[in-house]
């Protein structure tokens, strides 16, 4: 029986953007996109796609579907997943999806997964590389009523209905198993995601992706209400000050330095 794996991927500002180009709009509480630097698939999400594709490598009849919630530019994230080797892409795009919180994202994704229909496993990144909340994956599992295995480095199917999942622990590797359908999320231990091949890039460029609006998903006003409110968004400032310890000898200077550090509760 061919497997069907669904990967959820978010578009984020390129984490490699030079710090000097990072800007926020405090009034709008938004990150201002750095000009000329294209946003990218969130790296943890890309690693989740990689795990799904490793399963497809072993079982080529596996179908991998990429789902992304975002603006029109998130189409690139879907196309990136297709270029990596996924089979189908779905973009969840609607004016009402702008500025959604983690719960709303999980809610819309859950409706999309239900609309997709049969699936065996969902693959997510452990957290998005922009706001780092790490709530969508477990929220999605909760809304779907399926088990969640999070922050893993690999997964595989033992049978068509059971997966094994590995997570790096401080003192070793934890191996878990769960019945399908299951949600899994991944961390950097997955290793390097594959480079899209030229052939897949060409195929992906020609492939139509589905665009689902709020109405297509039956988004319900009450259930779609945000659960969190962004109170403030600011770039922290760090102040550096230098104090020269003056003393007649190195030993005395060391003593004075130690006292200063003690006073500052550093040592």
């Amino acid at each position: 029986m061919p497997l069907h794996l669904i990967c959820c991927a978010k578009q984020v500002p390129d984490p490699e953007t030079p710090a000097a180009s990072f800007r926020i709009d405090p009034a709008a509480k938004k990150v201002v996109p750095a000009p000329g630097i294209a946003p990218v698939i969130s790296p943890f999400d890309e690693q989740a796609v990689e795990v799904a594709l490793r399963i497809k490598d072993k079982r080529p009849d596996t179908k991998v579907t990429i789902v992304s919630l975002g603006g029109a530019s998130a189409r690139d994230v879907v196309k990136h997943g297709l270029a990596m080797g996924a089979d189908e892409g779905i973009l969840l795009e609607d004016p009402t999806f702008e500025n959604v919180d983690a719960f709303q994202t999980a809610y819309v994704l859950s409706l999309a997964v239900k609309k997709v229909g049969q699936f065996d496993a969902i693959f997510c990144g452990r957290q998005a590389a922009d706001f780092d909340q790490g709530q969508v994956a477990i929220g999605l599992a909760e809304l779907l009523g399926i088990p969640a295995l999070i922050n893993g480095q690999s997964a595989d199917f033992i049978t068509d209905n059971r997966v094994t999942f590995e997570r790096v622990l401080p003192d070793g590797i934890g191996v878990f198993e769960a019945n399908t359908p299951v949600l899994t999320s991944y961390s950097q231990e997955v290793g390097q995601p594959r480079y899209p091949t030229l052939r897949n890039i060409m195929t992906a460029a020609r492939k139509e992706i589905s665009v689902w609006k709020a109405a297509d998903l039956g988004v319900n006003g009450a259930a779609f209400a945000p659960k969190t409110r962004l109170v403030d968004l600011y770039v922290p400032t760090y102040e550096g000050a230098c104090e020269i310890i003056e003393a007649d000898s190195p030993a005395e200077a060391g003593e004075k330095l130690a006292l200063k550090l003690r006073e500052a509760k550093i040592i």
Binding site: A38, V40, H80, A83, I201, A204
Partner: peptide, 18 residues
Amino acid sequence: LTEEQRHIIQNVRRFVRE
């Protein structure tokens, strides 16, 4: 740029960087 060109450039840019 065409969509293919954008993706191929991203690919090579990532290759140089990583």
